[in-house]
Design a protein around this nucleic acid. Sequence first.
DNA 1: CCGTATTTCATACTTTCGTATGAAGCGTTT
DNA 2: AAACGCTTCATACGAAAGTATGAAATACGG
Lengths: 142, 142
Amino acid sequence: MLYGITGGLLIVLMRLVEYKYLVIENSVAMYGGLVAALFTCLGIYFGLKLTRTKEVIVEVPVNSPGVPFKPDEKKKAELGITNREFEILEHMARGLSNREIANTIFVSENTVKTHTSKLFEKLNAKRRTQAVQNAKNMGLIP
Amino acid sequence: MLYGITGGLLIVLMRLVEYKYLVIENSVAMYGGLVAALFTCLGIYFGLKLTRTKEVIVEVPVNSPGVPFKPDEKKKAELGITNREFEILEHMARGLSNREIANTIFVSENTVKTHTSKLFEKLNAKRRTQAVQNAKNMGLIP
DNA sequence: CCGTATTTCATACTTTCGTATGAAGCGTTT
DNA sequence: AAACGCTTCATACGAAAGTATGAAATACGG
């Protein structure tokens, strides 16, 4: 109904304009453009009005999976843990041996040992298991 | 751009139709209607595309606080882990050395070693760090 | 360009861990 | 009682882990 009325009004308007103010050369194009613009707006309006999806807030109780986990960078910097050291910490937490870590990141086993030793100092640990546990408690690793 | 092209095509089409098939009485109305319908669709499309609200999912991290954690007794029985072994596993996960565990539960270090060895078999681990990690993944320890 | 931090690696040594094997004491179950 | 499982412990050896020290290359900021 609204559509019909709008259309009718438009036509009337166009007729009036056409007769009153003379016919411009590309009047069809101009009128077409006007109509197009107007109905585009109408389309947008109705499109939104009719199908607007409500904002749905779903609270999902998640423990770890889902939340990607973000290492505590503050703590990391606070303890002066370098990137390389942190990398090794992660592998350590996964249960890898020094040799396996060395092979994984392509350095010598001795290098891994130096890193781990420094990590133990910074994490205040005496053993790798303790280092992992402490790192976990500090929010450095999941 | 898309708009311009569409408009141009429409005009050309209308011209062709107009000259070829004669002029109907209310041609302006008809063409207008066509244009209106077409651009209404366009409007709906863009309206939806540009402003559709997404479903918002809020993930509420509920980890340990609230849930005291209950070790998976099924898994424990399934793997044939005895109480004593599990006790040692817990201490191991806390980062204690064999000697410390021995002193804690008042047994010899050798005893702890036998327990740990059996644990490694049952948990399919080669190292204590790996054992802890696997136990964690299986839900045996937090 | 110099100093500092990071990363790499080595050598040597100590400590801890992990495995293998055997054995003894103790409850339960059969 | 015999068998079985759990716990305890020992000895001995090999394999990792961890410590100490020194050194060199790279990167980065002043």
